[in-house]
């Protein structure tokens, strides 16, 4: 299990970079770089630019999301920032403020 998990109640202030998955249940401020997937769970909070593979957002994200794959804004997500991805879904109930950039 090389997955990195930021548990609920934990705050990381700074940069986090990894080649594997990242699951955010707590708070991350700074910068998040993952070669693989990023999951921001409900209750999780990211105040950072995210560069990743597939991203599933169910928590709060303030910052730009750049994904080499797809970005899923799930029900309960609150995203303020621009999203750049090859595919994107915005579920009913997701809050989103920002622009979408897709390679067409």
């Amino acid at each position: 299990m090389a997955t990195t998990v930021i548990g609920a109640g934990i705050t990381i202030e700074g940069d986090l970079s990894t080649d594997d998955d990242v699951v955010v249940q707590g708070t991350l401020r700074g910068k998040l770089t993952a070669r693989d997937g990023v999951v921001v769970e409900a209750g999780g909070s990211v105040e950072a630019d995210i560069a990743s593979g597939p991203a599933q957002i169910a928590g709060a994200v303030t910052g730009n999301i750049t994904s080499t794959d797809r970005v899923d804004l799930q029900n309960g997500a609150k995203v303020v920032g621009n999203v750049k991805a090859t595919r994107i879904t915005i579920a009913d109930g997701a809050q989103f403020k920002g622009s979408v950039d897709m390679d067409v």
Binding site: T3, T4, G7, G9, I10, I12, G14, T18, D20, G30
Partner: peptide, 28 residues
């Protein structure tokens, strides 16, 4: 076990980690 934070192998954190819960560090 919901409050466990894991810094996975190959992950690099530059900055402060604080809060409630357990922490396992396998990265940097």
């Amino acid at each position: 076990m919901s409050n466990v934070t894991v810094i996975g192998e190959g992950a690099v954190v530059r900055g402060r980690i604080q809060g409630e819960g357990d922490l396992a560090i396998a990265g940097r």
